[in-house]
Amino acid sequence: MPDQTKHSLRDLFLRNKRDLLAYLTRRVGSDDASDLLQETFARALRYESFREIADPPAFLQRIAANLLRDLARRRKIERRIIDSGRDAADVPSEADEGEGRLDLERQSKRLQAAMADLPPGCREVLTLAIHDNLSIEEIAARLGISENGARKQLRRAVLRCRAAVE
């Protein structure tokens, strides 16, 4: 990437980081907002046709919105994995909502750690299922493995993740 483009991206970052950080913080809180802000600019840096963008701040906003959608989808799937191991009696009542939220956050962190510790094949299959929302057939085709192999990898990953959060 030419120095000119790097400078223009740096200037764009300096001009827009406060607004984007405020936008992201309103949506997900301060803990995740800074990571999403960093990822927004990392993705903008990787975009090859950056000079051709008519409205760079709107482009950054679109990247941030897409990252928010990805995070929401990932959390929904994480909750589904976590909740699949719970009984209805284990679900927190409204009175315990604050404590339940903290417990869910702890479980989410354990799940993320478990996902990071998965063998590469399992992690790749789980990532394609969660992040890219691919079917077993699509995962198998993309990775060049059998559908049965993809199912086994996914099953192994889910069992390890479920064990980590229980």
Results as ranks from 00 to 15, higher is better:
residue 138 E to L: 07
residue 121 G to W: 08
residue 112 Q to M: 15
residue 106 R to N: 13
residue 81 I to Q: 00
residue 72 A to M: 06
residue 105 E to A: 11
residue 111 L to I: 09
residue 134 L to R: 08
residue 145 I to G: 04
residue 70 D to L: 00
residue 91 V to R: 09
residue 105 E to S: 08
residue 79 R to C: 04
residue 84 S to T: 09
residue 128 L to E: 07
residue 102 L to V: 08
residue 50 F to S: 09
residue 137 E to Y: 08
residue 88 A to T: 08
residue 118 L to F: 03
residue 50 F to H: 11
residue 62 R to P: 04
residue 124 E to C: 03
residue 127 T to G: 09
residue 88 A to M: 09
residue 113 A to R: 15
residue 133 N to T: 14
residue 64 A to I: 05
residue 115 M to F: 06
residue 116 A to H: 15
residue 99 E to P: 06
residue 86 R to A: 10
residue 103 D to F: 06
residue 71 L to E: 12
residue 119 P to G: 06
residue 143 L to H: 00
residue 59 F to C: 01
residue 86 R to W: 12
residue 55 D to P: 01
residue 135 S to L: 05
residue 71 L to H: 01
residue 53 I to C: 01
residue 77 I to R: 03
residue 123 R to N: 01
residue 97 E to F: 14
residue 110 R to Y: 03
residue 106 R to C: 10
residue 68 L to S: 00
residue 100 G to Y: 04
residue 72 A to Y: 05
residue 121 G to F: 11
residue 119 P to R: 14
residue 137 E to C: 11
residue 54 A to V: 13
residue 108 S to M: 11
residue 90 D to A: 13
residue 61 Q to Y: 12
residue 117 D to Q: 11
residue 82 I to H: 04
residue 78 E to F: 12
residue 53 I to N: 06
residue 110 R to L: 14
residue 93 S to V: 00
residue 126 L to C: 08
residue 64 A to G: 02
residue 68 L to H: 01
residue 94 E to Y: 15
residue 128 L to Y: 06
residue 116 A to L: 11
residue 114 A to L: 06
residue 115 M to I: 13
residue 74 R to K: 10
residue 104 L to I: 00
residue 96 D to E: 15
residue 60 L to E: 06
residue 121 G to C: 11
residue 144 G to K: 03
residue 48 E to V: 09
residue 70 D to K: 05
residue 61 Q to E: 11
residue 128 L to N: 10
residue 97 E to N: 13
residue 65 A to G: 13
residue 66 N to V: 06
residue 105 E to T: 10
residue 64 A to C: 02
residue 113 A to Y: 10
residue 131 H to S: 11
residue 95 A to K: 11
residue 120 P to N: 09
residue 109 K to V: 13
residue 100 G to I: 08
residue 123 R to D: 04
residue 89 A to M: 09
residue 129 A to G: 02
residue 118 L to Q: 08
residue 144 G to R: 01
